[in-house]
Design a protein around this nucleic acid. Structure first.
Lengths: 141, 141
DNA sequence: GGCAATTCATTTGTATACGAATGATATCAA
DNA sequence: TTGATATCATTCGTATACAAATGAATTGCC
């Protein structure tokens, strides 16, 4: 399935290219509905709400971001007063990240929109197809 | 399918998150096999080989990159001597981008690897599943 | 012909991403 | 216990991405 009927090379049939385009469309839908936060920022807040206070690196691994990337995301959320940083008494290397009241309010207000974003992104598919796609995508992720 | 059995919110089931993770894995596979070029650079060269000389913006739209992004990609390829820039006599706004001999040699050598990359990325799936995934992904892209 | 709208490319600013190097701290094992 | 190893966070460098603003050139339309 990586080679077309003529045996030639077709960018459009490479998984990487299609993933990139699907991501682009999803991002457009996301920012139309949640202009205030980027998907990584949203993921960080949503995960913090789920697990409570954690170290920065731990949070990164929960949302699949390396240390350098998560730092930038947390820095920007901190600058907006949505998260706060504490020290870990037991391990002086660690930074404990937690939601502020504002952060909690915001993410609780936005979480319901996430379902709508996923719904709109998957709108070209039937429910059955959408669930197949999510399942298969999960297996290669 | 965006809500789990307990009715709660689960990041792992949001299409955006899964797309991002699938992309990460694909990128890792890509750079292990083609360390020399990024996927966008590869896409630009592959498309140039397919369509021949085109304007920068035209190339961008063929590979789904906006004008600002494509400029950076082309600049770096130009700096490495893989593409060259010419002027369009008929339209002085346009930059015509084309492969150099080195660029053509490189992309011809690398294109066969693309199939292997797609294959490895889709390895967790059966052939039938892989082709379903590509089809469905194409519909939401 | 001439002006409005459009297109092409560039620039600036912001936000992921990730590799690699570094310093501080913990842990583990001999 | 101490020395090697590992972990946590930071920093630097490079490479996408995209929005918005800009200037130059072209096109469309009356």
């Amino acid at each position: 399935m990586t080679v077309g009927p003529d045996g030639g090379y077709h960018l459009q049939e490479q998984i990487g290219f299609v993933l990139r385009k699907a991501n682009q469309r999803h991002l457009a839908i996301f920012s139309a509905r949640i202009g205030d936060l980027t998907p990584p920022q949203f993921a960080a807040l949503a995960k913090l709400k789920e697990v409570g206070e954690t170290s920065q690196n731990q949070l990164g691994s929960l949302i699949a971001m390396d240390a350098a990337t998560v730092k930038g995301v947390i820095d920007r959320l901190k600058a907006r007063g949505l998260v706060e940083i504490g020290k870990d008494g037991a391990d002086k290397r660690r930074l404990l990240v937690s939601l502020t009241v504002e952060g909690r309010d915001l993410i609780e207000r936005l979480v319901p929109l996430a379902a709508a974003i996923t719904y709109e992104t998957l709108a070209p598919l039937t429910q059955r197809e959408a669930s197949t796609l999510l399942r298969l995508l999960g297996r290669i992720a």
